[in-house]
Amino acid sequence: MQEYKNISLQGLWHNNPALVQLLGLCPLLAVTATITNAMGLGLATMLVLIGSNLTVSLVRNWVPKEIRIPVFVMVIAAFVTVIQLIMNAYFYGLYQALGIFIPLIVTNCAIIGRAEAYASKNPWRQSAFDGLMMGVGFTLVLMTLGGLREIIGNGTLFDGAELLLGEWATALRIELFTVDYPLLLAILPPGAFIGMGFIIALKNAIDHYREQHASKPEKQVTRARVTAQS
């Protein structure tokens, strides 16, 4: 149980793919203009991560070391194709909104990073769980950034959520305030970079605060004997 708890902590906080490893920044910055897009891409990435981690872990003993990267990429590409076709069939509006960034999940370094760093060395249960936790961590960061940018840029939350969640989700749309002239910067790519910088800074500040206020273990004083024992 301790192992799974550790994996969760690593994925959600200490080794978060977006905040600490800074992997997969391309989709992170490109599609987080609204929280719905962010959630859609986050979920898609998470499913691919679970699938690829599981598969890579299962075949890890039969893949020669020399050609492991092409094999990983093909596994990932297969899962991305599956997700892409599913989204095309069931979430067409979101599929169009995310556009090229769904097939580009293949090149998301977070996925191949986990396949290489974790799944190719660990049993399948832990690998699949690692994929889930890394995916959840990535999705949460995407949603935070998407939410921030949507609030600052549009004054809304969950705009267009029905594209992902079905008709009932139109009720989720929250209009926080209306602006005549939205702060376009927040919606444009530079806003994503600046927002991401702030989120990383916040995470570091929290870590710093906790480190300073953590109860320090009692210092073990070991004295070296300098005088000869009589």
Partner: peptide, 10 residues
Amino acid sequence: VVLLVSFPLQ
């Protein structure tokens, strides 16, 4: 530049 990108009309 932030202003120009965000509020081109004004």
